[in-house]
């Protein structure tokens, strides 16, 4: 198992992460639904996590900063989803919609 993981070059991980980042960014920019945008953000955060762990293994597994960073990102992502969904519920209560096109009181 160790050999299989070791034999995959760093670039592959980075390409997967970059692809995930692009998918997430595409979702964020094109979706009008607040929940879908939140999902796009989660994809970007996971892309960052893949980067962190891949780099950590590549540049120095003896130091723990990369994986610790990844763990912290996972925690923060959970907090962010909690706050975000609470806000989305708040909007749904007042508008009966989570579509950004309907959230248009503030303009100018």
């Amino acid at each position: 198992m160790e050999d299989v993981v070791g034999s995959v070059p760093l670039t592959w991980y980075l390409v997967v992460a970059a692809a995930l980042f692009c998918i997430g960014l595409y979702g964020v920019l094109t979706r009008r639904n607040a929940v879908s945008i939140l999902m796009g953000v989660e994809l970007i955060l996971n892309a960052a996590n893949i980067n962190l762990v891949a780099f950590w293994r590549h540049v120095g597994p003896e130091q723990l900063d990369g994986v610790v960073f990844a763990l912290i990102v996972i925690t923060v992502a959970a907090c962010e989803a909690a706050v975000g969904l609470a806000l989305i519920i708040g909007v749904f209560r007042s508008r009966r919609s989570v579509d950004l096109s309907d959230i248009d009181l503030l303009q100018g």
């Binding site: 970007i44 892309a47 009181l105 503030l106």
Partner: peptide, 19 residues
Amino acid sequence: EGGIKYFLYGAVASAIMLY
């Protein structure tokens, strides 16, 4: 509404910063 707009922009901006 101000809160959700702030949140959506902020979440995206900080995710990109993290990357």
